[in-house]
Amino acid sequence: MSAQEFIAIDLPALLAALFACLSCALVGNFLVLRRQSLLGDAVSHAVLPGIVAGFLVAGSRETIPMVVGALGAALVAVLLIELVRRVGKVESGAAMGVVFTGLFALGVLMIEQGAARSVDLDADCVLYGQLEDVIWLGPTRFADLADPAVWLTLPREAMQLIVVFAIGLLLVWAFFKELTIASFDPGLADTVGVSSALVQTALVVLTAVVTVAAFEAVGSILVIAMLICPAATARLLTDRLGTQMRLSLLIGGVTGIGGYALGAMLPVWLGAENAVNAAGSIATLGGVILTLAILFAPRYGALARRRRDADLGMEA
């Protein structure tokens, strides 16, 4: 592989994968802590018709219309859930299940209709991501990368993920205290003037933005894996929230880069013709790392627990 090939094909895709994973890991920490992991799943499904609507209206994969559409869809989803819950008198889990799958189905129908009108948006791209299509036609040699101006020509998919991650990191850093108290004890948060409803809403919006920004890279389905795996892995490795956040970013980064590399190289090493879908290999690696943590984490791992139980058994 030449330097030019790497910079044109692999580097932008790697950057998109890396920042998609970092953004998801960042937000995922709070979803995991609040036991709202499925919120990411729900949001990523519900925003699909909004993304497609934004795409159909704008006629291109511009970020802003799709984000607006996605946030609109998220809002509609929240209102619909409330409506189904009240009118249908069902519990909120059931209402969520109905609304999110319904909206997702609507999104798929809209994609099919759009495809019929030969618009450039297909179900595969939305569902599984299209990292392989991210191409950087600018620099041709590694030396070119030293010029800051050349980075401004970075493909939109990678650029938007870098911006989303930067904004997310800034928000989480600035309001870490508020996120923590509202996640740990919403009642106390409300009594000291930190509106837990506001924090919850902000978290849903941030999740929606990250989901939309990341869906092109890893797909709207696999985005859920990256929202949960790095944060859940980090949760098993530490008892400090700050450490957990840093670890989750590290794990997310390793998963993004490692998963992409595996997807590109492993099949070739194994003698297969083509590289596999990068989003799939990233999500799989995320799952493998989480599994290792579940088994071998020092305090919360299954083996450590077993050993402790055995020790207790010896004493007794």
Partner: peptide, 22 residues
Amino acid sequence: FPVSALDVVAMGRYGLIGWGRR
């Protein structure tokens, strides 16, 4: 929740500290 005893007690001060401050 991954916080220490001191972290939780410090939450009692959040109302005095104000939004977005350390």
